[in-house]
Amino acid sequence: MEHAVRHTVTLIRERYGEPLTLDDLARSVMVSKYHLLRVFTRVTGVTPGRFLTAVRLQEAQRLLLSTALTVADISARVGYSSTGSFTRRFTELVGLSPTQYRRLSLSSVRADHRATRPAPAAPTGWVTGTLHTDGAPLTSASVGAFDSALLQGVPASWSNTAAPGRFTLPRVPEGTWYIHAVAHTRPTPASADRALLVATVGPVKVAGPTPRPLDITLSPMDWTRPPILSASMGIDPQPLAA
């Protein structure tokens, strides 16, 4: 059924601006909606609806940075009938309102999150570990603790580090978290293109002051992963691709 899931992902990426439903997606691959929901979630880790939302908001991020369209126009272009609903969802999953996202530079986004996120209530713990790669030259990597398997919203703790290399996430509130890491490969003389590398480990339980060591291996972003939305992680929105 991987073919059906891949076809569904392609359809979402091509028709994200339309009012797609689970029934529409299931009809396109000629299976029941319940079967599609099961296999899609197993392959991608999220439901078709959540994947669609991530694709819509990724395109909204790109339009906010690359065009002068109003928030209302962008909202309509990416499939929302209500600007208010779009703004609430964007703010929840990106970590900034559409207006803030457009106005702030990437460095300002990080400073804003560092300054405005409330200090975690005690007790907290630490997450440490090592990032591994396949040997490709990388820019610095970002690592963060999130409350979702999707890379969205504002992390409870994050840091920049070298990849490969060690990382530390301080003052992570006790509880269950997903540790996400992202990096770009460096341009080379043979290619100016930068590949996006990602990794997710979790759920990870943080309890007490003893560091929780992890080994995380970055690998290229593939078609099964929903787009990255969190502004905190410093990844520029990428063009939509099948």
Rank of each mutant, 00 (worst) to 15 (best):
F90P: 03
P239G: 14
T128C: 11
R42F: 04
P120E: 11
Y101F: 15
S66T: 15
F90K: 11
G79I: 06
T176V: 09
V46I: 10
D222R: 13
N160M: 06
W126M: 03
A242L: 04
A207I: 11
T188N: 00
T99M: 10
T130A: 14
P211T: 04
R194S: 11
I228G: 00
R212C: 09
Y80Q: 00
R225W: 05
R110W: 01
P187L: 01
G45C: 03
W223Y: 12
S142F: 06
M1E: 07
L20S: 00
G202F: 04
A72P: 01
A121K: 08
R117I: 08
A115H: 10
A122P: 12
T99A: 13
V39L: 13
T124Q: 01
D112L: 14
S142K: 07
G79S: 00
T47K: 05
S140H: 12
G79Y: 01
Y101S: 08
V55W: 12
D112C: 10
G84V: 13
F167I: 07
V5F: 05
L169F: 06
I228M: 03
I74Y: 06
T53W: 04
A183F: 14
L57W: 06
D147G: 07
A145W: 14
Q100W: 01
V78H: 05
L22K: 03
G234W: 03
Q100A: 13
R89L: 03
T70G: 14
L151N: 08
Y178A: 01
P189D: 07
A156P: 02
I216S: 09
T188R: 11
F86P: 10
E174T: 13
S230M: 01
L169V: 10
H132I: 02
L240D: 05
F40G: 13
R110K: 05
E59F: 03
L218F: 14
P98E: 06
G125Q: 14
V204P: 02
L240H: 03
D222A: 10
A54N: 08
H132G: 11
F51Y: 15
V39C: 14
L150S: 14
P211M: 07
S107K: 00
R171H: 15
L37W: 15
A115T: 12
G234K: 06
R27S: 04
T99I: 12
T8R: 04
A119P: 04
Q152M: 00
G49S: 09
S232M: 01
G79W: 04
M1L: 07
T200S: 10
G45F: 09
S159P: 05
R110Q: 07
H35I: 08
H180P: 06
T139R: 14
T87D: 13
R186F: 09
G153P: 08
M233H: 00
